[in-house]
């Protein structure tokens, strides 16, 4: 196990290095620069500011300096927020995003599993069609449309929950969480339904029936764990979807999260903040994928990651 984890960590570092490199050059290819948008500066002033931030140096040199600092976990200062340290900016903003992401992931997968199980166990009944309908809505309606609908009906018309912002504590997180969770919920519901139906048709389920197991025992003791395996496979991409989804949803709900900050950073070519946020997201995603791989081994004994099984 230790050997496996070490190997994975090395790969993770390599991945991060590649992501950092690509993002750096892609970002530099974007038109504009953090200071070009200030029309009041004269040429001399511009040159002076560029020199101060090292933007006058050739690209490979800038890249070298950047990478060197990044290894020391120094992402520089933001161009946009005067003198603010990027690492601090990210940490301050990560809280709401993190809460939303985790809540949406839990709601999405657990809700999806329940919905999918109902659909599979009550195949071709009203229950099944209802759950299918919800899943189709979840997949086809983009999260920002769904978010606006929630805001209007529950926030404005109903007045039960805050329409936006992050000022009512946990209550503020409910609507954005639901908006964010719909996609993963729909995906996992479909996955679980298909898998459960397939697993329920296997020989080992017939054998479990032949042992005298009841319908519920078969569904939960025998079928569920086997049906879960493919869902774990898509958990990584689902989590990635939540990260990107939160960019949009945070904007709509005006939540001071990291996604919102990221969008602003791109709009104003805030190089160091873009790089910092990208690296933060990448680390997060790579960690999620790593956790998913470990989970795999826990659920499916055939994929225990110990290497040899002696």
């Amino acid at each position: 196990m230790a050997k496996y984890i070490l190997k994975r960590v090395l790969y993770m570092i390599l991945t991060l290095f590649l992501i950092a490199t690509f993002t750096f050059f892609l970002m530099k290819m974007l038109p504009g620069s953090p200071i070009a948008s200030s029309p009041k500066l004269t040429h001399e002033q511009l040159a002076a500011v560029e020199a101060k931030y090292g933007l006058d140096k050739p690209l490979p040199v800038q890249y070298g300096i950047y990478m060197k600092k990044m290894v020391q976990l120094d992402f520089g200062v933001s161009y946009q927020f005067k003198g603010a340290n990027v690492t601090e900016l990210i940490i301050n903003r990560a809280g709401p995003s993190f809460l939303l992401g985790i809540q949406a992931l839990i709601l999405g997968t657990i809700g999806g599993i329940i919905l999918g199980m109902i659909a599979a166990l009550r195949q071709n009944t009203v229950w099944d069609y209802g759950s299918t309908l919800i899943a189709i809505f979840g997949i086809s309606i983009p999260s920002f449309v769904f978010a606006s609908l929630l805001q209007y009906w529950i926030g404005v018309k109903g007045g039960f929950l805050p329409v936006g912002l992050w000022e009512n504590g946990w209550q503020s997180s409910i609507l954005p969480t639901i908006a964010l969770a719909m996609g993963p919920l729909a995906t996992s519901a479909r996955f679980i339904r298909t898998e459960m139906i397939e697993v329920l048709g296997t020989d080992y389920i017939t054998l479990a029936k032949a042992k005298g197991a009841s319908g519920l025992e078969i569904a939960f003791k025998h079928a569920f764990r086997n049906a879960l395996i493919p869902l774990i496979t898509v958990m990584g991409p689902l989590a990635a979807g939540l990260v990107t989804g939160s960019l949009v949803v945070e904007q709509i709900f005006a939540i001071p999260g990291i996604g919102e900050q990221f969008v602003k950073a791109i709009n104003s070519s805030d190089y160091s903040l873009i790089m910092g946020t990208t690296m933060f997201f990448s680390v997060l995603l790579i960690l999620v994928i790593f956790i998913v791989d470990i989970l795999y081994g826990i659920v499916d004994p055939r994929i225990r990651l110990t290497g040899g099984n002696k």
Binding site: T202, D203, Y204, L207, A208, H222, R225, N226, P301
Partner: peptide, 13 residues
């Protein structure tokens, strides 16, 4: 007792 022992046991138990 079933025909195919390769598929008649639950792989995760």
């Amino acid at each position: 007792i079933f025909q195919d022992p390769m598929t008649s046991l639950n792989p995760t138990m």
